Computed example of a mutant assay.
Amino acid sequence: MERKMPMLRILALATFLSASLSAVEAGELHKALLYKNPQCSCCEGYADYLRQNGFDVEVKPTNDLAEISSKAGVPADFQGCHTMFIDGYVVDGHVPVKIVEKLLNEHPAIAGISLPGMPMGSPGMVGEKTEPFTVYAVTKDGKAPTVYATE
């Protein structure tokens, strides 16, 4: 009987920890809505990249991408090739997941972030990274974007 008690405690603890970890993992799954040009395949690559990093991404093709980005507060020269909405923020372009997670953890008072254009080697893009990626903070008040992070 004495030997069974420690084993039961171990099993109970293992069950508790397993359930706790599953709850944490489920709680960290961020839902995102990504708008993209219907003909763009790199955007699908970016969505897959996010999924591989624990994000739940819904992709919606649209021919109104520039308008969606603009309405979200992203100036035309700071727009990427897709626009994502996540936890109340806009994320424009191929922003690395570490920087998206930084945004979601810090909760800054901004509209969102953007990696303009389609830099080679960025998540979802082909080629090798040749220079640091500069990600900009997009403000809610229409002021010029500022550097949010580099990678």
Rank of each mutant, 00 (worst) to 15 (best):
V138I: 12
A47Q: 01
M84G: 00
V138R: 04
K98R: 12
H94A: 00
A137W: 07
N63G: 15
L104M: 08
G54D: 05
K98E: 14
I113H: 00
S18E: 12
L8W: 13
T83D: 06
Y136E: 00
Y148N: 00
R3A: 15
E2T: 15
L115H: 00
R9V: 15
V126S: 14
S22V: 15
E101F: 08
H107W: 07
E28W: 15
F133R: 07
E106D: 13
P116W: 01
Y49A: 02
K140P: 08
P123D: 00
L8Q: 15
D64I: 04
T62S: 07
Y35H: 13
P116H: 10
L8R: 14
E101G: 05
C81D: 14
A26G: 08
P119N: 08
A14V: 10
F78A: 06
E128D: 14
V24D: 10
L21I: 15
M120Y: 14
C40G: 12
L104Q: 07
D48C: 02
P116E: 00
V97R: 05
V90R: 04
P61G: 10
G54Q: 03
V91T: 02
R3P: 08
N37E: 13
E128S: 11
A12W: 09
S114T: 03
A72N: 06
G80A: 00
D141P: 08
H107S: 15
T134G: 09
M125S: 04
C42W: 01
T130G: 13
G80E: 02
G54H: 04
H30Q: 11
M118H: 03
L115D: 02
A32L: 05
V97Q: 07
Q79E: 06
V74N: 01
L34P: 06
K71L: 09
K129P: 06
D64P: 06
E128Y: 10
S114D: 05
K143E: 11
